[in-house]
């Protein structure tokens, strides 16, 4: 691991850190675990960096490693699960206090997305990031048809969470 490689990696990650932060904000519920997950993703990215050939964009490559870390490699501790209940409680009260209907709707939507399972979250995340179905299916390792079917089910799930 030479200095030049380190420098190139850190610079690229610094410029693209938003992707990692967005994954962290979806998969964690408090600042500590956000930082924790950010660190784990950084470690995994760095470990895999020598294999990054540059035939795809650094950011595209990051999506895969970041999501894989959040979905598969990252281990949540019990303490953080407690914080989650606490957070979503505050979240609900706040959402009810909103006057603006659209703002309130958005709050409810974010809350609903946070309640989804790990895989569904990844689908929504890639959708929100404007990725097409071929990229979604490749990242998750399912066929494109299945990715579409799954996305429709997620939409239905969100609808049920929003209108119980």
């Amino acid at each position: 691991m030479d200095k030049e490689l380190e420098h190139r990696f850190v610079t690229e990650l610094e410029n693209n850190q938003n992707i990692v932060h967005k994954v962290c904000s979806l998969y964690t519920n408090d600042r500590d675990s956000h930082n924790d997950l950010f660190q784990e993703i950084t470690i995994q990215l760095w470990k895999a960096y020598p294999k990054f050939r540059g035939d795809s964009k650094f950011s595209t490559w990051m999506y895969r490693v970041a999501l894989n870390t959040a979905i598969t490699l990252y281990r949540k501790s019990k303490k953080r699960i407690k914080t989650k209940d606490y957070d979503s409680l505050i979240f609900k009260i706040k959402a009810d206090e909103y006057d603006d209907t659209q703002e309130r709707q958005l709050k409810l939507m974010y809350d609903a997305v946070k309640q989804l399972g790990d895989i569904d979250k990844a689908l929504v995340f890639l959708y929100l990031e404007d990725k097409d179905y071929s990229e979604i299916s490749e990242t998750l390792g399912i066929t494109e048809v299945n990715a579409r079917v799954k996305m429709n089910r997620v939409k239905n799930k969100l609808r049920t969470i929003l209108n119980p």
Binding site: H21, S25, F38, Q39
Partner: peptide, 26 residues
């Protein structure tokens, strides 16, 4: 997509320190 401006921002040094930390993955 508008949310980006509210995201935390880590400095070069902060990220540099992280790459030497030990993984605690599953």
């Amino acid at each position: 997509q508008k949310k980006e401006e509210h995201l935390p921002k880590l400095s070069y040094d902060q990220i540099y320190k992280m790459i030497w930390k030990k993984s605690s993955s599953i």
